[in-house]
Design a protein around this nucleic acid. Structure first.
Length: 421
RNA sequence: GUGGGUGUAGCUCAACUGGUUAGAGCACUGGAUUGUGGUUCCAGAGGUUGGGGGUUCGAAACCCCUCACUCACCCCA
């Protein structure tokens, strides 16, 4: 291996990144806040493997979705199995429920999850190849009220995390009964205007007609205003469901925008879909997305149970959130000389057993340097041990903010520490 | 996958039209101060200028390739 190859080989993979110690606290705090909130709504954490049979996503996420057609990390393992690093979470949960017959256990079927997802996409700000999601799923709740409760819970989450400038977009994408006929209508209208549409839109007529609505071209925009909207073509059941969903949101005083052009990138959604965006983010502004999927479970040969849920991008969430780190008080133990060091180590063991965070740095440094370190690192108090302390069995306890220093016995130290001075 | 921009010390940035030994602030280490921190002063260490190739007497600068980041498209979390 040459020098340059060696250098190259030690970089992290494109689109992945390390979460360093000075930012891990945010992730922990986020998970704590989110988990705590979800549990109040009756959700429980579930954890499934990061890789699954490729077939799971082909069937679940959808053969025609962008994710499956071009973004999956798929490989064959040494046993000849076709495996994919999960690009999203929902199919895994569905699989797990069926596999463990969770629907036969005592309800509710409400799950949440934090973990990495993998998509081979072009990285940019807010978009990574390994990224992390919070995922929430509810099963066997047909009523539109649960869709509204999910939106309400999602909103609570963002509020608790201090995310500003939130927009909530909602839509219904119909079901297998009404969506195909709507697509036909839309295609027909678009086809009639084909001549006047841009190249991109002409392609979308066949591949993804719903995307015709968000073309940037002014002329296309004008034309698409005349296209039929899904919300005008829902079957009775879907229309009722959507109206009920919106009515519940109104009752909960949640402001939202009905966005009939809102399409999610996943094929399996039925009826309700929703998306939260934040103005704090820039181009990749979708922070949370979700919806209902009535058919996935039975498509996998499971029970005919509906599902509804959402996913939140943690990286995007954190860049829009404003969290404050919990300050904690800890001790710097400064020692001078070999005997003092041993005394410090023994003392630290006792204090740690009491729950105190103690830091001793095993490097010969002057007291001056050690206090400088303690100050810079933000120690609240310093325990000082030198020859005199070794002899007397007492130590100096110094408060770094007041500068006050007291002489305490080793036995009385734990007690002295509990007095905030 | 398609276009544009940017890569100089751990971080933020300098370095004329291509000119000789690539600098500064912050951070780091040591000393002034061998048992008392925030200021100050002195000193030190730290770079194959993202990597490779080319043009040139001479490249951080210009050209090509590549890698990474970044913005837009696409798509999505």
């Amino acid at each position: 291996m040459s020098e340059s190859e060696r250098k190259k080989s030690i970089q992290s993979i494109k689109g992945t990144k390390d979460i360093l110690p000075d930012e891990v606290w945010m992730w922990q705090k986020l998970e704590e806040i989110a988990g705590n909130l979800f549990e109040r709504y009756g959700y429980r954490q579930i954890r499934t493997p990061v890789f699954e049979a490729t077939e799971l996503f082909e069937k679940g996420t959808g053969e025609t979705s962008d994710i499956v057609t071009k973004e999956m990390y798929s490989f064959r393992d040494k046993g000849g199995r076709d495996i994919t690093l999960r690009p999203e979470y929902t199919p895994s949960v569905v699989r797990s429920i069926i596999e463990h017959r969770l629907h036969l256990r005592t309800p509710p079927l409400r799950f949440y999850y934090f973990g990495p997802m993998f998509r081979y996409d072009k990285p940019q700000k807010g978009r990574y190849r390994q990224f992390h999601q919070i995922d929430v799923e509810v099963f066997n709740e047909k009523d539109a009220a649960i869709d509204a409760e999910l939106v309400e819970m999602a909103q609570q989450l963002l509020i608790r995390l201090g995310v500003k400038d939130i927009h909530i977009l909602v839509n219904s994408v119909g079901c297998t009964a009404c969506r195909p006929s709507y697509h036909q209508h839309l295609r027909k209208s678009a086809d009639q205007a084909r001549e006047n549409l841009c190249k991109d839109c002409r392609r979308k007529i066949d591949t993804n007609p719903l995307r015709l609505f968000d073309c940037k071209e002014e002329s296309c925009r004008k034309i698409s205003e005349g296209f039929p909207l899904i919300t005008d073509h829902l079957c009775q059941e879907c229309r009722d469901h959507f109206l009920a969903f919106c009515a519940y949101l109104d009752e909960l005083s949640i402001s939202y925008l009905v966005e009939s052009r809102l399409v999610r990138g996943l094929d399996y959604y039925t009826k309700t879909t929703f998306e939260f965006t934040s103005g704090a983010l820039g181009a990749q502004d979708a922070i949370l997305g979700g919806g209902r999927y009535d058919d996935m479970m039975k498509q996998f040969g499971g029970p005919d149970i509906c599902g509804t849920g959402f996913a939140v991008g943690i990286e995007r969430l954190l860049s829009a959130a404003s969290l404050e780190e919990n300050k904690r008080e800890w001790l710097y133990i400064a020692t001078l000389g070999a005997e003092a060091r041993i005394m410090g180590m023994k003392l630290a063991r006792e204090l740690r057993a009491e729950g105190w965070e103690c830091l001793i740095e095993y490097r010969e440094r002057s007291l001056n340097k050690q206090l400088g370190r303690a100050h810079k690192l933000g120690a609240g108090r310093v325990v000082l041990i030198g020859d005199e302390e070794v002899r007397s069995g007492r130590v100096q306890l110094k408060n770094m903010s007041s500068g006050q220093q007291t002489d305490v016995s080793v036995l009385g130290l734990a007690e002295a520490l509990n007095v905030s001075d």
